[in-house]
């Protein structure tokens, strides 16, 4: 299908983006990589009056390693992170999750913040952000700059805490901690498809912090005990997610994947399939 009509503005600065969002609010959509927004425009699932293109705003295209975080600006593409050699030391979980996102052709244009803004429950980047305890930075022309913890930012299916006049200016991933191993794993119907279940793991000697995507209406992370208590804890986690039946998988299958894949990932992470 073809998109409905809209005005198009190619913004030159962050200030211009904020001004336009202030003016148009809910009638505007921010266009970054377009790998989700363009599809929804083409299918007329969204029909904004104004599309604000941030692709040429240099100040939003920055990756900074600052005060214990990796801050990724709104226009930074996923491929810029996969090409960043030091990412595996800075945020190893993200480095391991990136190859699971879509395909190289979509990572070429898709942005990190765009995936966070879209808030698909099975998306890999929101899952990593929640599991690591990262945050989302929101800016508006008149309001205060807000930094929202990822666990509060994601509020449900394609629903976030972003207000209509706010721009997600960057997302902040905590840097790797000593003594923690990071692992990522997912099951999808096809290579690069939406995950039926995606798991992000921070493994320490005294416990496992496990994030689950694709089951609840948002990514969910819980700390689990190791050893004999693990199977029960995984079972409780699996039932707590409110899994739904759909055409791709039953709720029971999704719960089983959380239990089985979760156990394998925590107990034998080196056997996990990588991409």
């Amino acid at each position: 299908m073809k998109a409905a009509s809209f005005d198009y503005v190619r913004a030159e600065s962050k200030r211009e983006v904020l001004q336009l969002l202030h003016e148009h609010g809910e009638d505007a959509r921010v266009l970054a990589g377009g790998q989700s927004l363009m599809a929804t425009l083409n299918m007329r699932l969204t029909q904004p009056k104004v599309v604000i293109d941030i692709n040429r705003v240099e100040e939003l295209n920055r990756i900074r390693n600052d005060s214990g975080h990796l801050a990724v600006g709104a226009a930074v593409r996923q491929v810029q992170l996969t090409d960043r050699a030091e990412l595996i030391r800075e945020v190893p979980l993200l480095a391991k999750a990136l190859p699971w996102i879509g395909h190289f052709q979509t990572r070429n244009r898709g942005t990190v913040c765009g995936s966070v803004a879209h808030a698909d429950p099975s998306a890999e980047i929101p899952l990593c952000l929640v599991t690591l305890g990262g945050s989302v930075v929101l800016e508006s022309l008149k309001g205060k700059r807000r930094e929202v913890p990822a666990a509060d930012f994601f509020q449900g299916l394609l629903t976030t805490d972003r207000q209509p006049k706010e721009l997600i200016s960057e997302v902040r991933f905590p840097l790797a901690e000593d003594g923690t191993d990071y692992h990522f794993q997912e099951i999808a119907m096809r290579h690069g498809d939406f995950a039926l279940v995606a798991l992000a793991l921070c493994l320490r000697a005294d416990g496992a912090h496990l994030g689950v995507g694709g089951v609840a209406d948002r990514p969910v992370a819980r700390t689990l005990p190791l050893g004999d208590e693990l199977p029960d804890a995984l079972n409780t986690l699996a039932w707590s997610l409110g899994a739904q039946d759909d055409v791709h998988a039953s709720a029971a299958y999704r719960r089983q994947l959380v239990r089985e894949l979760g156990q394998r990932l925590i107990e034998e992470p080196s056997h996990a399939r990588t991409r």
């Binding site: 190619r10 377009g34 363009m38 599309v51 052709q105 244009r109």
Partner: peptide, 12 residues
């Protein structure tokens, strides 16, 4: 860079 041309606007 390999890109989906259906997910880009001509003006971009």
């Amino acid at each position: 860079v390999a890109s989906r041309s259906c997910l880009m606007l001509a003006v971009q």
